[in-house]
Amino acid sequence: MANNTKIVVENLNFYYGNDKALKDVSMLIQENKITALIGPSGCGKSTFLRVLNRMNDLIHGTRLEGKVLIDRHDIYSNTTDVVELRKRVGMVFQKSNPFPKSIFDNVAYGSRAHGIRDKTRLTNIVEESLKKAALWDEVKDKLKQPAMDLSGGQQQRLCIARALAINPEIILMDEPASALDPISTAKIEELIRILKEKYTIVIVTHNMQQAARVSDYTGFFLLGELIEFSDTNKIFTSPQDRRTEEYITGRFG
């Protein structure tokens, strides 16, 4: 791992009330690489992802110990502005969740929230983001139409465009293709591979083939512990831990 480290997680413990959801997790996430998090349901991988943009703050009664540094800055320190953090760390959710607004207004939402009002500038941002998300050609003539009219796969790419529009450095993806058909999934995966040139991507997935196909690094979570974290190649060809091997060969999970 000779690249630049973007995110450093050190001895992270995370609690929902009294339930310990993450146990002493440490991980280095590399810049402009795709890091995949795999593991059975309830293993803590989504919780871990949501730690990185402090989305868990919304859940009442959660608590965190340990350190999470992005560009060497502790994002859980008192001086961290959560709004600023989330501008830098975008997120794409499992279920596509466009607002009940037009395609244009969806993509422009973040920029408007940050105070950009200039119509030309917004138009440029929307076009650029939709192009980056490989959706522009399909929607360029109907930007004013409701986003809800798009197909599931298009909606998810719209959500990616919406996340890209705020120009983040890191993109977190929580099973972004789990609700999509194979063709839409292939499009999303291709998109993710292109996006890594400019962004650091962390992706949670249930689909191990997907992790193997798109990611550079893979972490395997089990019952709140990070069992193994390494090059994706290494994880899938010669896992060091017996549990990792059992999981990726489909013996449980």
Binding site: M55, L58, N97, A163, I166
Partner: peptide
């Protein structure tokens, strides 16, 4: 999910 989507965009 609407709230999460909005907050995740730095709103």
């Amino acid at each position: 999910t609407f709230r999460e989507a909005s907050l995740a965009l730095g709103a």
